[in-house]
């Protein structure tokens, strides 16, 4: 399953809940959730710990817009909108954690 998160983990529990609940698969961070995948943020350790269970994808245009594209945390992968579409197609279902 593809899990789409759009809120910063420092202001909303969506990403943390997803990491603790979902059985694995792809995670795509979009909009304000991209802050989760920046080096040095308080959620970084939790994200890194989840990398064995999940593949962490980050929507590059959203991180670029926020001025942090050079701080992508190691182990996370950039995707563009075409990559977003590929993730949706590759997974049988997708869930937006709103």
């Amino acid at each position: 399953m593809l899990h789409i998160i759009n809120r910063s983990p420092l202001s909303d529990r969506a990403l943390e809940n997803c990491l603790n609940t979902a059985s694995g698969g792809d995670i795509l961070l979009i909009e304000d959730a991209v802050y989760a995948a920046t080096a040095g943020n308080a959620f970084e350790a939790k994200l890194r710990a989840a990398m064995g269970k999940f593949k962490i994808n980050v929507l590059r245009p959203d991180l670029e817009a926020r001025g942090l594209a050079d701080r992508l945390v190691e182990g996370a992968a950039f995707v563009d909108y075409a990559g977003f579409v590929e993730l949706v197609v590759a997974n049988k279902t997708c869930q937006s954690w709103l």
């Binding site: 609940t21 979902a22 059985s23 279902t93 997708c94 709103l98």
Partner: peptide, 15 residues
């Protein structure tokens, strides 16, 4: 874990 397993069984998840 049970919640996650149940989510895996769904066709459409809306939030």
């Amino acid at each position: 874990a049970e919640v996650g397993a149940l989510m895996d069984e769904q066709d459409v998840i809306l939030s």
